[in-house]
Design a binder for these strands. Sequence first.
DNA 1: CGGGGCGTTGACTGAGATCAATTATGGTGG
DNA 2: CCACCATAATTGATCTCAGTCAACGCCCCG
Lengths: 254, 254
Amino acid sequence: MHSPHLTPLVQKLRHLFPLTAEETRILESTCSRTQRLESQTDTVCEGDRPSNCNLLLEGIVCRYVILEDGRRQIMSFHTPGDIFDAHSFLLDEMDHSIRTLTPCTVALIPHTAMVEITERHPRIARAIWKDTLVDAAIFRQWIANIGRRSAYQRLAHLICEIFIKHDIVGLSDGLSIAWPFTQMDLGDAAGLSVVHVNRTLQELRAKGLIATTRDRLTIGDWDALVRAGAFNARYLQLAEAGPGIARPFGAKPH
Amino acid sequence: MHSPHLTPLVQKLRHLFPLTAEETRILESTCSRTQRLESQTDTVCEGDRPSNCNLLLEGIVCRYVILEDGRRQIMSFHTPGDIFDAHSFLLDEMDHSIRTLTPCTVALIPHTAMVEITERHPRIARAIWKDTLVDAAIFRQWIANIGRRSAYQRLAHLICEIFIKHDIVGLSDGLSIAWPFTQMDLGDAAGLSVVHVNRTLQELRAKGLIATTRDRLTIGDWDALVRAGAFNARYLQLAEAGPGIARPFGAKPH
DNA sequence: CGGGGCGTTGACTGAGATCAATTATGGTGG
DNA sequence: CCACCATAATTGATCTCAGTCAACGCCCCG
């Protein structure tokens, strides 16, 4: 039997790069220990030279930079199963920070273990490498999203992405997900002001695409949301996506 | 002795992840053949499932997507030494296209060779992996640049990045570089309209930060350009950067 | 020498930023 | 249970950066 802690990673890799039971066990054994983090704390900071990678087990984190004039840009959100700083074992210095948006649990993977696994288990290495490449694909999408789409489209796209990322690790009920994001978080992610995020969300709600309560987001019309954001889940590389995945309401492919 | 063709890659890896002569030789031998490409041609297209990676030997290419409404977003430019589609050996389907901006030469590395090298030569694998991680770091910078900076800052930053990328592979004379980019290319990269790029470039020229001729860009005031773009070359991971690197005019660190 | 691509210019427009309150909301301590 | 506080959401008014539209000029190339 294996630790229940790794489940999110295994769950994600099922879509990405299925590992054997043996490989899973090895991957598990690389985690030296887990750590509990409060909400709104920086786990890694720009300029740090970490000696561990972090596998997120529970909670949501964001990757961000603070620019010269104090403005913040969020470059990604991460859900359980993500090794959100896998790059740190090859790039010496962090060029951005990672902050929790909720209480989180992370498993620490020492860089030494990363080096070893890279050398001894090329398939595991490739799985992790692939994961970093999917992250890069997500960055590219964000560039296109921020560079060329309207506020309405951007937020629709962002919400689709967040929803799917939750869904593939079993964190949605098919209709709704936990929603710890403030409007400022969304603005900093989408390159918009808080005020404009507020008005745009109202529009999305008014059109019935989404509904929000304090701490949950519910999809009102998935197809319309996908259309509004011109969202195509392909870039998330969900090779093994089941019929329900990426189509929360079981809508049939046309 | 080794092929002069690989020089740009070796030159880049000198900064990134120095390989031994033996490793260089092995890397070389993975290139099955080289190919000549005309300017303005797509070498890989969105939706393709390539069976080779491309190492750029000569010329400039851009990575882009065409959005639903026909608008284009460029997500990166690549200079000689870049394996611009290294990800294609782990991600089945291209989620974007690559287009030459000049006549180019590329060396083809079969995916089979990538798999083999990954398994047999973990150090080479890590060098390539690291290269893909630097690309990801560049994507993150673009997100911050597009999401939170003014047109003037964006273009200054973009020009700095392009200049440095040329410089590290010996494609600058310390003062100027070849400049095949149209104002539309720059606009599609920076998330701006052509008209606004034009006016913003005029401003950069008027302030003496840059000078342009038909096909060359000359730096007028590097320090001011760096300041204008809040450019920090650190994200390019030039660990082995010599004193001249990233400071084209030998300005002394303060 | 004529046409197409690219750069440039001017006039107008508009999406989204900024500024400045005001109103929930949830947590905390009394 | 309630006053109090901080954080987040919301609203209205105004402003501005950058987009759009429409010419026009330049230069290279056939």
